[in-house]
Amino acid sequence: MVTVARETKEGKQSRSLTHKDEKCVGCGICTDLCPTSSIKLGPILPIARGLLKVDKININKENCVLCGLCASACPFEALEFDIDGVDIKERPEYPKWTDDAEIDEEKCIYCGRCEKACPTEAIYLSRSLPNVEELVRGETELDQEKCIQCGICEELCPAEAITMHRNDIDPSEPNVASSVELDKSKCVYCGVCKRACPVDAIKIVCTTCMEQEDIVTPEIEGCIVLNEDECINCGWCQEICPVDAAKVTKPFEGEIEYTEDFVCKGETCHACEDVCPCNAISIVDGKSVVNPLFCTLCGACAKACPQKGIIIKREKMNLENIRSKSWKRRLSGLTEENS
């Protein structure tokens, strides 16, 4: 965390700018916008590959005039700007991002797809499932006297419900196992063990069909949390959710294009893939492919591409309440063609 702080307006106001590197994706939007060119983008590819441990941006404290534009425009809330201790996000005169992500718990079926797909691990799921015992019914009987401890049932059991407790081979008590145990919480009464047992030591009766009326419909309870602090509104959860429970509004709207003479080096380079905070890029048939469904149009890939072949075409920026005309002009640079 790096902070630039100063008294301004003849000591009547204190302003501070703080960079939170853990939230920074290295997109370079702040570096493009800074009116005094006080922010430099760091080596984002070596950082993304874990080769260098430095901050993704570098703020020149001497040159920074503490205007707050960078903090207002950072889509990832990696820059925080305070005036007299109040974050400008809380001040009505400053712009507000309207990008957002939410998961509707009413609709969520706790399948966990979004949790696995989320590139920033911003989703937490906990769920409780009923015991198998409550859903299948039957009877088992294992005759330890008949059992010859061959272990065939243990090896075959598809539910891994059978365990043979093997012992050390002892000449005074010649045996290979002390007992065979069947775990009723795992058994589904399929009868494979019974049919395979060479000495007929196992009895299995499935009563699931007979007792169907008594068996409850499985109720899946859970809780899903989307941590806004870690979420970058990439759209993965929305796209992967099978029941439309996740809704994402991205920071920008637009598309990715490539320069006409772009020769993508694919697997040799894959810088774009490595720096993308959204896991939106993959190398397919030796070429970089951005899936627009997951892209936030942040532009980190364009910055990292050594061939300068990626063009971020932002058509709309979901930042509202831009009151200053000069800021509006400056910010409009983001929604024109940038490479």
Binding site: P43, L45, P46, K265, T268, C269, A271, P306, Q307
Partner: peptide
């Protein structure tokens, strides 16, 4: 060398 230019771009 495959001319990816990563070294050129990233040399400190």
């Amino acid at each position: 060398c495959d001319d990816c230019d990563l070294c050129i771009q990233n040399c400190p």
